[in-house]
Design a binder for these strands. Sequence first.
DNA 1: CATTAAATGCACTTTCATTGCATATTATTT
DNA 2: AAATAATATGCAATGAAAGTGCATTTAATG
Lengths: 138, 138
Amino acid sequence: MNEIEKLFASKDIRITAMRLLIYKFLVQKETAVTLSDIENAFERADRTTLYRTIKTFEEKAIVHQIDDGTGITKYALCEQGCNCEIETDLHLHFHCNNCNETVCLTEYKIPHINIPEGYMAEDVNLVVKGICEKCSGH
Amino acid sequence: MNEIEKLFASKDIRITAMRLLIYKFLVQKETAVTLSDIENAFERADRTTLYRTIKTFEEKAIVHQIDDGTGITKYALCEQGCNCEIETDLHLHFHCNNCNETVCLTEYKIPHINIPEGYMAEDVNLVVKGICEKCSGH
DNA sequence: CATTAAATGCACTTTCATTGCATATTATTT
DNA sequence: AAATAATATGCAATGAAAGTGCATTTAATG
Ligand SMILES: [Mn+2]
Ligand SMILES: [Mn+2]
Ligand SMILES: [Zn+2]
Ligand SMILES: [Zn+2]
């Protein structure tokens, strides 16, 4: 068993060819992906399989879902040892208005947010939109 | 001309029966609404009209759009004198996981968010999820 | 009241998300 | 190494929300 297979086994995910391919695809991507992105990368595979694979990865905390405001849900690999199944993964996300890519800013944690008396926070979603490093000419 | 008609006139919005009704509906609501909410409130009206009315209101900065992470876009009245057409309306939004309602916390502004060198922020979306005042027993 | 521009209603389209079920593949037991 | 049980996959279909084209109606203007 290689590293990926060990990871799958440790999370009770059956090792299949498709899952290994999709996992490798996600590793090699440095931005968040949509289901369509995966679909385009694996044109011979069925959409449903890709959909259910990413959902399995999400349940098992291999990827986390990102709502960047574009209306299309995106996914990105979780950091090693992230606990987003239990408590929220509190980093922020950046969506580029130019190249339309979304990235995890895992080093940039969401600050404490004040809310009115009587309200109880359980989760926070913070998305910054603007121009990314690559598009601004770093 | 009453107050609402004056508001419409000042924003170059034609005064129609439907628009007045929808506006009054929004005023009387204290939480953000979906297009379906409006549809249910006006079952005799055509969905397209409701859709285009809310889009007109949005363009003219009568309402602003809210992405609370539920996947369904919501709308709420803008504060008087808000400039969300030009610069972003920087208050935060709260989504209750219990009653499923979303509210504008107009008094609670979005704090400054640190982002990496090379990135340029143009817009920020901040949604806190949890239990609202009413559901927690105020 | 006549003219013109915009709003409305209806039918259709698109896109993304999701499910049911038959078949294939993987893991487990004999 | 079969046989069995459990799960994954492929295909077809459905659903929800958003959006568009065009003919008809309504509102603003002189
Ligand atoms: Mn992330
Ligand atoms: Mn608001
Ligand atoms: Zn970019
Ligand atoms: Zn509530």
